[in-house]
Design a protein around this nucleic acid. Structure first.
Lengths: 94, 94
DNA sequence: AACATGTGTCAGTAAATTCTTACAGGTGTC
DNA sequence: GACACCTGTAAGAATTTACTGACACATGTT
């Protein structure tokens, strides 16, 4: 999840989605100013991290649009929380 | 700062420092189980991000030891905060 | 002097990410 | 059918990040 946030493009995508409320892939690509395949990749990572949600819909003229929106996350980033996170990742008995 | 946290080694370093209170480079390298030059690199990134602090001291037998400790940070990771962060990074007038 | 401890840095390589280009499929309109 | 939209994926290039091994320097002990 932290690696998903460690990228300017992805932060910009989140900001844009937050501003727009929701947007579909091609439109969002134009808004952010990056290619559609690249956006698709970033959206994948964001969705895997649970930071955005997708919802496939049909427009009035029958086209399939994949809408994305920011998930409602809230994490208190402190040293203590990171200690817990590390315990989760590695079950090493040093 | 987010990229500094987006790495298992660095999270482990923070966890170890939090557990030990403080530690110097060579000792910490042994504790975490990575090479000293590599640890040095990670500590650099952590310090640049303001997540750790360093303090050069002299041991009783005259050796210069560089002690590190975790900084007392607290960030509330929410969509709204990220929007602010993006505004800081890019002053683009779209 | 040779050794063990500590500090840092630099060059080259390995690996992971990021990005582009090209492809393949869908529906509706001219 | 050709075009305009939309969707996805996959291969290869380019870039960034991570890592190793060697070097240089310092102090105290054998």
């Amino acid at each position: 999840m932290l690696s998903a946030l460690a990228n300017p493009h992805r932060l910009r995508i989140l900001a844009m989605l937050k501003a727009e409320g929701r947007s579909y892939v091609s439109q969002l690509a134009r808004q952010v100013g990056i290619s559609r395949p690249l956006l698709h990749l970033h959206l994948q990572k964001l969705e895997e991290a649970g930071l955005v949600t997708s919802q496939l819909e049909l427009s009035p003229d029958g086209k399939a649009l994949n809408f994305f929106a920011v998930a409602d996350f809230a994490v208190d980033l402190t040293p203590d929380l990171l200690v817990q996170a590390v315990a989760t990742l590695s079950a090493k008995t040093d």
